[in-house]
């Protein structure tokens, strides 16, 4: 996903002379092509995320649309107050990009498990929050951001994620990938969407045709977002994030109270484990079999 990000950012930077990339001494073998093509619009600020985010706000005030880039919790939680006070309060065009959403860096341990970012950043009402599921969604997100310079957060996976669906662009609403034939939907944000699609395939083989929605757009939520959920009375929300403040929480906050939201998220205990992303997802019940079982139970007899 990070390769799709940088390729699309370079493409956009050729059109938009305001685009600036500032990294926190991370991005080896990813950001070099941007740095080579746009040396005047690239900066490595060093291992100093507070200064990175504060100076990004300053560069934005000087006329740039700054993309800050780092991994895991470093460009978000480490410098949360700079994001709140300097970027959001001053309404400046800074897009925070974090690679390694959820448990992408699973075996690097707790410090690199990025599973509280959405809950924390959703409280910053000025932020647009995008959480693509695959390289195609990531490219669409970058295209949208390039034409909407504002305080924003782009939550990316890592590398090697498969393309999960045909590119359909970015809307301020979920993407309905399978409409289903009932009123039960699985909604996912981020690359765990793959698990939702696999679970839906398993269930379809047994005759249960579920809807699957991808949710790259998480904030702000408006009528278009709510309308996409209108056909569904029960939603199973999948996310590589703790339950507090994430996708399920957002749906409970924004959909009508009659809609039953069931959450599959990362239990805090799982953040203390170390392992591959796939194994950690299994520990959290975020694998295709477990999700299919949960959905079957929700569907009833």
């Amino acid at each position: 996903m990070r390769t799709a990000f940088i390729q699309e950012l370079i493409a956009q930077a050729r059109q938009c002379p305001e685009i600036f990339l500032a990294v926190g001494d991370l991005g080896y073998s990813v950001v070099e092509p941007f740095a080579q093509e746009f040396p005047d619009r690239f900066l490595n600020a060093g291992v100093a995320e507070q200064n990175l985010t504060g100076l990004a706000a300053g560069l934005a005030a000087a006329g740039y649309h700054v993309f800050t880039y780092s991994i895991a919790n470093f460009p978000t939680l480490r410098c949360l107050e700079q994001l709140r006070n300097d970027v959001c309060h001053h309404d400046l065009p800074v897009t925070v990009v974090s690679v390694g959403a959820g448990l992408s860096y699973g075996n690097l341990g707790y410090s690199h498990h990025a599973v509280q970012d959405l809950g924390i950043l959703r409280t910053l009402g000025e932020l647009t929050i995008l959480s693509p599921a695959d390289p195609g969604e990531a490219r669409a997100a970058v295209r949208w951001l390039a034409t909407h310079p504002r305080p924003s957060y782009l939550r990316l996976g890592k590398a090697g994620e498969p393309e999960l669906h045909e590119p359909v662009g970015l809307r301020e609403a979920p993407l309905v990938l399978r409409p289903g034939r009932g009123n039960l939907a699985i909604a996912a944000t981020g690359s765990v969407l793959k698990c939702a699609l696999e679970a839906a395939d398993l269930l379809a083989a047994g005759g249960l045709d579920l809807a699957v929605l991808s949710c790259p757009w998480l904030q702000p939520v408006g009528d278009e977002f709510r309308a996409a959920f209108a056909p569904y009375r029960r939603v199973l929300a999948l996310e590589e994030h703790v339950a507090t403040g994430g996708l399920a929480s957002l749906l409970r906050d924004t959909l009508p109270s009659g809609v039953i939201i069931t959450s599959r998220a990362i239990p805090t205990a799982v953040t203390r484990l170390v392992g591959s992303q796939a194994w950690l997802r299994q520990q959290a019940g975020l694998d295709a079999l477990a999700v299919a079982a949960a959905a079957r139970e929700l569907a009833g007899p």
């Binding site: 504060g54 100076l55 300097d86």
Partner: peptide, 8 residues
Amino acid sequence: PFGVGLAL
């Protein structure tokens, strides 16, 4: 830090 960004 903000001033550093303005100056840069």
